[in-house]
């Protein structure tokens, strides 16, 4: 049994909140650069240049990439042989409060969805904990902006609707989103599982490398096909037209019920952020 102090969790989460909001992951940067190189539409080229310049300024000056520093979504893979000394969830929330306060990140969380008073420190975090083999604690902080989150959708399809139904739903989601989610967007698609599980699959799909492909050739082909279809809409960067509507489509799947075909699309923006540390 390996012991990890709750204070160490707080420190790690705080540092990850700050890093994720200032430094765009290298795979996102690489996709943006590649998209800029392949873009043929002049307005789109100019906008992609600005996004690349912005990411560089943020990194160099320690500024947030986007003013919407998001809901702090925290993924924790806790090794079964880890013993946390103290209250784990309280330690995560304390890390978010510390990171968002000391890092001068925006506090965007209201305590109640209808009465809407800001909590003042961006807590609580949304925490997804998994128990895994081993004696490590792996923490990923994925700040998620709400402009793109608002464009995300979930639908309980019927088995008969199949792959065509899934693809139609993804493309419908993109068309409804239009310019709103700050394209070029990233799409995390969950297929299968059940109602609450499919949404988490879609969220986790946003953590996958943008330049990767599903290990299952069937879904790898679907990712490629959807990416091409989304980029064929012509929405373009910021919605002003162009080839670059989407940087990557990633799919995660789970077994599901004989009667069901849940699908969820978690729309993200060109600032698809996450940072990871292992304790």
């Amino acid at each position: 049994m390996r012991e990890i102090r709750a204070e160490a969790v707080t420190e790690a989460v705080a540092a990850l909140c700050v890093r994720a909001n200032r430094e765009l992951p290298s795979d996102v940067l690489a996709r943006l650069r590649a998209a800029r190189g392949a873009e043929t539409w002049e307005t789109a080229q100019g906008l992609l240049d600005l996004l690349l310049e912005n990411a560089e300024i943020a990194r160099a000056e320690g500024m947030p990439i986007c003013q919407d520093t998001g809901t702090a979504v925290v993924f924790a893979d806790v090794g079964q042989e880890v013993h946390i000394l103290g209250d784990f969830e309280a330690a995560v929330h304390a890390g978010v409060a510390k990171g968002y306060t000391e890092g001068l990140l925006r506090k965007s969380i209201v305590a109640d969805p209808l009465r809407r008073v800001n909590t003042g420190d961006n807590t609580p975090a949304v925490i997804h904990t998994r128990l895994v083999p081993g004696d490590r604690l792996t923490l990923t902080v994925a700040p998620k902006g709400c402009g793109s989150e608002n464009m995300s959708r979930l639908r309980m399809l019927t088995p008969a609707q199949g792959a065509a139904g899934v693809k139609d739903f993804v493309l419908e989601t993109v068309r409804l989103a239009g310019a709103n989610p700050c394209p070029p967007m990233v799409l995390g698609v969950g297929i299968g599982g059940n109602f609450e599980g499919v949404a988490e699959l879609a969220k986790r799909a946003l953590l996958l490398p943008l330049d990767g492909r599903s290990e299952d050739p069937f879904y790898a082909a679907m990712e490629a096909e959807l990416l091409e279809a989304v980029n064929g809409t012509g929405i373009g960067p910021q919605g002003f037209g162009g080839k670059t509507t989407c940087l990557s489509v990633r799919i995660l799947t789970a077994p599901t019920h004989i009667a069901g075909l849940p699908v969820a699309v978690n729309v993200s923006c060109h600032v698809t952020r996450h940072a990871t540390a292992a304790l």
């Binding site: 310049e53 506090k107 003042g120």
Partner: peptide, 25 residues
């Protein structure tokens, strides 16, 4: 330009809260 907030901050020379400070951001 959505999401180019570090760059666009350079175009703001002054910022002052004039109402409803309780709303924070």
């Amino acid at each position: 330009v959505g999401g180019a907030a570090a760059l666009m901050a350079r175009c703001v020379t002054a910022c002052e809260v004039i109402a409803w400070d309780d709303l924070g951001p």
